[in-house]
């Protein structure tokens, strides 16, 4: 099974620059435990530059922990995490911050700062990095909001005044405003109706293509996974157990992945229910 994963990830790399190309993100043997619970148990993953990977997995399987390890929000217990061939776990804080400057993140619930208006949320990173002045930030925010289909007037509202779909769009605008190389999407369509979910997926695909960024998304939504991803990987019991084209989800021939993608009750994944 491990060979299958290696082949799939290397194939993804080959499609975007050949087998010799350094992956944009490379994880090897990443392990993380919280107390007695081993959440990541040797995660191996490659994401080629300009590629969009979707990580699938049940609740509590460690998807969010995986991307938080890459982001530096959680320190892994073991393993290597490379971005552009450099191990971020061995970097100094300053180097790590420089890497983080090139990464965007869309959080599951948006994580918008409710004490700030929308325009300040959108331009937060640009203001923090001194790439835009406060005087010009409103215009910049309006420009980025237009890219996610929102009117510039939304910039003056507070996040609490927005609907769930609008909050997701603002969070997307914030994630792309600094034109990152890598963008992480944590369950981007959770809590949205199917049409709004499709709209957000479309915006994500457009934004990622326009920026030429590398994208890693985690989701339970199979329709969303097929729309966003070039490749999908299945995380189960702390390991990547399958990786392949996102379009093949549901008919991969891998019993565990097919059960998950088709939402079947019977199969190798047994839900732990108390009776």
């Amino acid at each position: 099974m491990r060979d299958m994963v290696e082949q799939a990830t290397l194939a993804a790399g080959a499609a975007h620059g050949g087998p010799q190309a350094v992956p944009k993100i490379r994880m090897r043997g990443v392990r993380k435990a919280f107390g007695p619970k081993q959440v990541l148990d040797g995660v191996d993953l490659d994401v080629a530059a300009g590629h969009s990977l979707v990580i699938l997995g049940g609740s509590g399987s460690g998807k969010s922990v995986t991307i938080k390890c890459v982001l530096g929000l959680i320190e892994p217990d073991e393993g290597v995490i490379e971005i552009d061939g450099r191990d971020v776990t061995q970097m100094s804080r300053r180097e790590r911050e420089a890497v983080a400057d090139r990464i965007g993140m869309l959080f599951q619930n948006g994580a918008l700062f409710d004490s700030l208006p929308v325009w300040e949320n959108v331009c937060f990173k640009l203001l923090a990095q001194g790439r835009v002045t406060r005087a010009k930030a409103r215009d910049k925010a309006a420009e980025v909001l237009a890219q996610v289909g929102l009117a510039g007037s939304v910039g003056d509202l507070s996040p609490a005044e927005l609907s769930g779909g609008m909050q997701k769009r603002v969070a997307l605008a914030r994630a792309i405003a600094a034109q990152p190389d890598i963008i992480f999407f944590d369950e981007p369509t959770t809590g949205l109706d199917p049409i709004m979910g499709a709209v957000i997926d479309g915006l994500i695909v457009d934004c990622v293509k326009r920026l030429g960024a590398t994208a890693v998304s985690i989701t339970h939504d199979m329709a969303s996974a097929r729309r966003i991803g070039d490749t999908a990987a299945m995380l189960h019991k702390g390991r990547i157990v399958w990786s392949g084209p996102a379009a093949s989800l549901g008919h991969t021939g891998h019993a565990l992945v097919d059960q998950f993608a088709n939402g079947e009750r019977e199969g190798p994944i047994q839900m732990e229910l108390r009776r």
Partner: peptide
């Protein structure tokens, strides 16, 4: 309460990802 709410709604993690 303010910082705790920011913690449980990922706003503190968001700050880190926004170079702050």
């Amino acid at each position: 309460a303010e910082i705790g709410t920011m913690r449980v709604t990922d706003q503190i993690d968001a700050l880190t990802t926004l170079s702050t």
